[in-house]
Write a protein that binds this DNA or RNA. Structure first.
Lengths: 200, 200
DNA sequence: TATTGTTTGGACTCATGAGTCCATATACTG
DNA sequence: CAGTATATGGACTCATGAGTCCAAACAATA
């Protein structure tokens, strides 16, 4: 990706990372539209030359790095649950982790930043988002297949399709929460989605 | 809302409406972030003084008007199907109408504009979004109850909860399509959601 | 037709924020 | 320790876009 990464000192790498994480936090707090390079400089205690030193292509490049970072955060935050959906209890723990996360974080949410703010700006960011969806979908589908192998879900069900529906429900639930403050859509989507699996 | 609306001539009202619809189109095409007042002026053949004449509070006020307009569009576009979900065939027609709409429109989508671009900017726009969700949810829930009364769905199901889950799936499906270009999530959400109702 | 209010044109101001540039400081390498 | 590369500070330019203002055109009404 970045050929010049080799040139970075340990200190340089630390600064670069500090910028990414600070930018991510700022964007989560105030949105992409309101976040300026000056805000990021203030939060991360850096100067303008540092920003352009580590991200020569400017804001777009930084945003892309933030997108990649947030994308990883989204998946990490669901672990270890998402990686081991091997029993109904595990599914319930995962469900609770997701809901809890958004109950606590409220507006301050990396998915939203990614999906609705950075995600559509550039083709690069779009690719990051698409990859996140693919991984997430895959993890859920693997969980469904695991239960199918245990005979807890009918093998007549299409695991990929069910996973897609569930993931769409999560995305929409989070989106609605952000737009209206109402968490019940997310809960309904998860509960009804899991219930549908269960009754098959 | 606007006390001064009374002062508007027929011509004035037409101009105001032209501005709103032109702004909506521009925003759908290029996104809120990239849409400037000059773009809107060019598209609607208006001058800056007209913009500020009809929207004295400036861009925010115009955006709010666009939000209200798009909100109405979203519901209108689903009619007559959404208003008469009284048989499984009607549900299927509605499903097809929604999918078709987004297959054709692609990125050019009022919901996305509303939910992820204008929706979170100001409290006023947030209220518009919340109201849209409430109406939409209510229409779906009414459809579910209609089938329950006909004995086609078990009355044990919570219509509101099922409607919330389905609506979340639609929102998420649209969001994913916008971010990745993949329509299959939306289809999966609708199909699985309706199938879940059907099998109860 | 005179008068008043509405509508429109477009130049102007002003703030902001991205990106450039050069100087300096600090860290590696032989 | 010299020399070179990396890291940092901060002033500067420049484009852009929101919002202001004044004057002119047009419409309604008496």
């Amino acid at each position: 990706m970045d050929l010049q990464v080799q040139k970075l000192t340990a200190k340089g790498r630390a600064t670069r990372q500090r910028i990414i994480e600070g930018a991510a936090a700022e964007i989560r707090a105030r949105g992409v539209a309101l976040t300026t390079l000056e805000d990021i400089m203030a939060r991360t205690q850096t100067s303008k030359s540092q920003l352009f030193h580590y991200f020569p292509d400017g804001k777009d490049q930084l945003l892309l790095a933030v997108a990649a970072f947030e994308s990883q955060t989204v998946l990490d935050d669901q672990q270890p649950h998402l990686g081991a959906l091997t029993s109904w209890a595990a599914w319930q723990r995962w469900r609770d982790a997701v809901v809890d996360r958004y109950r606590r974080q409220g507006q301050n949410c990396p998915i939203a930043v990614l999906m609705s703010e950075i995600g559509r700006t550039t083709p690069g960011a779009q690719a990051v988002t698409a990859e996140l969806m693919a991984k997430w979908h895959s993890a859920i589908a693997t969980g469904i297949r695991s239960l199918q192998e245990q005979g807890k879900i009918s093998t007549a069900d299409d695991a990929d399709r069910a996973a897609a529906a569930l993931l769409a429900g999560i995305q929409g639930g989070v989106g609605i929460m952000l737009a209206t403050g109402d968490l019940s859509y997310l809960e309904a989507a998860l509960d009804e989605g899991i219930a549908a699996l269960r009754s098959s």
